[in-house]
């Protein structure tokens, strides 16, 4: 479930937890990689990915029920 944190490169700046409108990072502590407390509440708005200063530290995965149908 989204988001996925790459703890090897996350600097623990806390911007994602500060800005997530759904507050999926509720319970995160300062200067530590964020905890994903409510992954099922992610709306895939990408605020966390867009505003993260370390590219690749956060990625979002599309849940299977939300896969597009295409031909």
């Amino acid at each position: 479930m989204p988001p996925i944190i790459n703890e090897d490169i996350c600097t623990g700046c806390g911007i994602c937890a500060e800005r997530c409108p759904q507050d999926v990072f509720f319970g995160s502590e300062r200067k530590k990689p964020p905890v994903v407390s409510f992954p099922e509440e992610c709306w895939h708005c990408y605020a966390c990915v867009m505003d993260c200063p370390t590219e690749g530290a956060i990625t979002l995965r599309t849940p299977v029920p939300m896969m597009l149908n295409y031909k």
Binding site: E18, C20, P21, C45, D51
Partner: peptide, 12 residues
């Protein structure tokens, strides 16, 4: 209730 920088329908 969230953060004005990224909240609501105009968030991103």
């Amino acid at each position: 209730k969230a953060n004005t920088k990224r909240s609501g329908a105009g968030a991103c």
